[in-house]
């Protein structure tokens, strides 16, 4: 895990007079699962947008293997957006076919259908999918072209505990494949289970960065939630709260 895939230096983003991201510096290594944590409005999604190449930074830079984004950067990344609508009246099968057609060498659809367990609802209108089914489909769509880097923006928000666990399994499989994963989440347990490295943001700035266990140990607290609360004064959501 030595190759730096993405290096971020002095990264900033402002909208008129609102500073969303303010001078971030960090590196993401190949095969790493990198977590961006923070309360609402911390700048997680904006940072993610700039790493994805979807948003232009106001200041600073993001470099891919030490260079500016190549022209085919979108072919190398897979993105699961926080809120994505799909075309009405299309099934998961239609969507997989559509998104596969955008790429020269997509993963065979059968493999994706098996990997993300889409068979049970393959021909259902996507508007009638459950939250978990929908997220599995969106993840499959993000991976149709076998990308090196996968961005997951709050992939389990709004899911029931079972669906959340299912999605963790899928993300763990992606990690095992050696892909670089970058995710944002509000859930501490999720961050602890899935992420190798965490960046905790507040008001667009870095509060803390490091491996989850190391951060907990150095802060002398029992868990990430307590650590986060002590840093920001705002609790993140515990899985138990979602269950209830």
């Amino acid at each position: 895990m030595t190759d730096v895939v993405l290096s971020v230096a002095g990264l900033g983003k402002s909208y008129d007079d609102v500073v969303a991201v303010d001078g971030l510096d960090f590196e993401i290594f190949k095969g790493q699962c990198f977590g961006l944590l923070g309360p609402n409005g911390a700048g997680k999604s904006t940072t993610l947008g700039m790493l994805e190449g979807m948003e232009e930074p106001t200041s600073g830079s993001v470099r891919y293997f030490g260079k500016p984004f190549p022209a085919d950067y979108q072919d190398r990344v897979g993105i699961q957006f926080q809120a994505t609508a799909l075309q009405d009246f299309l099934s998961p099968f239609d969507n997989l076919k559509l998104f596969s057609s955008f790429y020269d060498d997509p993963i065979p659809m059968d493999r994706l259908i098996d990997q993300f367990r889409l068979n049970d609802f393959l021909h259902r209108d996507t508007r009638r999918l459950s939250g978990g089914q929908r997220q599995r489909l969106l993840l499959a769509l993000a991976l149709v072209h076998n990308p090196e880097i996968v961005f997951l923006d709050e992939p389990t928000t709004g899911l029931d505990p079972r669906s959340r666990r299912d999605l963790w399994d899928v993300v763990s499989e992606l990690k095992a494949d050696g892909r670089t994963l970058i995710l944002t989440t509000h859930y501490m347990e999720e961050a602890e289970v899935l992420c190798d490295e965490l960046l905790i943001l507040s008001h667009g700035k870095t509060l803390l960065q490091g491996a989850p266990k190391k951060l907990i140990k150095e802060a002398g607290v029992s868990d990430l939630d307590t650590l986060f609360l002590s840093l920001t004064g705002e609790p993140l959501v515990k899985t138990q709260e979602v269950i209830e």
Binding site: E52, M54, D72, Q74, D75, V77, I79, F81, A83, T84, A85, L86, Q87, F99, F102, Y103, L141
Partner: peptide, 16 residues
């Protein structure tokens, strides 16, 4: 409608 629902943003993240 596609833009408001975020579908266009999803398409932007492809080579289309």
């Amino acid at each position: 409608r596609y833009r408001q629902s975020g579908y266009l943003r999803r398409l932007k993240a492809t080579p289309l």
